[in-house]
Design a protein around this nucleic acid. Sequence first.
DNA 1: GCTAGCAGGACGTCTAGACAAGCCGCAACA
DNA 2: TGTTGCGGCTTGTCTAGACGTCCTGCTAGC
Lengths: 258, 258
Amino acid sequence: MQLGTIDRGDDRPPYRQIAAQLRDAIDRGELRAGDRLPSEAELTRHYSVARMTARQAIQELRTEGLVVAEHGRGVFVRLPAPVRRLASDRFARKHREAGQAAFLAEAEKAGVRAQVDQIEVSTAPPAPDVRERLRLDDGDSVLVRSRRYLADDRPIEVAVSYLPAEIAEGTPIAEANPGPGGIYARLEDAGHTLDHFVEEVTARMPTGDERRRLELPDGVPVLVVVRTAFDTTGRPVEVCDTVKAAPAYVLEYEVPAR
Amino acid sequence: MQLGTIDRGDDRPPYRQIAAQLRDAIDRGELRAGDRLPSEAELTRHYSVARMTARQAIQELRTEGLVVAEHGRGVFVRLPAPVRRLASDRFARKHREAGQAAFLAEAEKAGVRAQVDQIEVSTAPPAPDVRERLRLDDGDSVLVRSRRYLADDRPIEVAVSYLPAEIAEGTPIAEANPGPGGIYARLEDAGHTLDHFVEEVTARMPTGDERRRLELPDGVPVLVVVRTAFDTTGRPVEVCDTVKAAPAYVLEYEVPAR
DNA sequence: GCTAGCAGGACGTCTAGACAAGCCGCAACA
DNA sequence: TGTTGCGGCTTGTCTAGACGTCCTGCTAGC
């Protein structure tokens, strides 16, 4: 690709100018999805800046989600996010308050202090008791979840769901998990409950299985679902490539049966 | 607040440990929304690390959206995002395709090549001809928009809307603009059209007015709306504080009247 | 009483290195 | 043929400074 120069008269700092030139190259199609960006060393030589300055430019594009860095390999242009389904407003309007109340009660029972910002809706079939509690229509279910980034480029999603494990296990992942960009609930841990939750899960991450049950220290059953739809660059990956491709993990908090 | 120490046995790098301790302090409530974090110099002294290391820890929290840095003042804990309204699925299901087609036609007419990922819905009253074209129900309107970050902590949102300016100007901002976290359309510039769009707009940003009309070089009329609802820390601000409080700008592409 | 200037503190940007760790291809070896 | 080890390239982390800009509060002068 063609690299420009740094303009002293430009009021933007050098690292922003470098980032803008890389961003423009992506916008123009000169760098396409999956392509490797110039390495930090190349940028350092070309622009005559320190390596940390070149890194800062790339860091900006990483924060924007335009590129992905892979340790020891390089920095790659990311594919755009796929079109995502819209949440059901009809459902949400009708059940938001009831869903929030039920979720908060369940979370408290499990020792997790939760705060609900929003409710995410999926079309997976809910359990009969959940249907009744939330007054669900046919085809409706509710998924309240939170999200935390624990490792660079490896998003860990902590999901709290009303889907019992046995149902979620039989549900296509795309259905049970509407994906990023949706509507989340934000969890606040009472004591260190949520931290334990996350630590335990990351410690026991599945290395080959697609799904696995966990039992947390405080007795909260958890279902781990490995989303295999996309890797870090947005490319669809096969299930067998899941582990190598830095998959996103989705943790679903299973509501105890009664 | 109480700062811990860096554990050499911990496999996380020091900057992550520092970030985790700050994050925990926020989670525990030791640092509350609006509070100032320890300064970079204080972190440097306490942990005996270089300033860049302390900065990296804070950078991590900034990327997560937990804190906000203010030049010359300090780093502050951010308020949680307000509860956002859900998009209307009933509307979206019914009008998604029609809305996309109409949007693409309008964009092409204006010389902007657009790609629609999703449609965002607001409850602002639409123009009669838009109502008819999109077969809107009472209280329905459609807002398709894109988003770009042009400056640190100062999100610039480029919005393409079906609301004619004269109606949008009379519409409460909160209604015409459902806020971040919604559903966006991704624009791709034909030639450099979108770049001009953004450059022109940033060059002419209003300094005091709440709304202002713009005329871009290629004749595309634009309405600039300053959102005054929240500042960078999430605090609600008065209109008169808008400029000082690093406001977000919303640009609405005005559909030409016919 | 008011204002302009100044000093100190805070974050923003940048340098020129250093070592660690991961990835990959190639060559040597079993 | 299969495997192991190594060297080169890449990104990850870190140091110890430097200077700039912005904000705030104090102080001296009007």
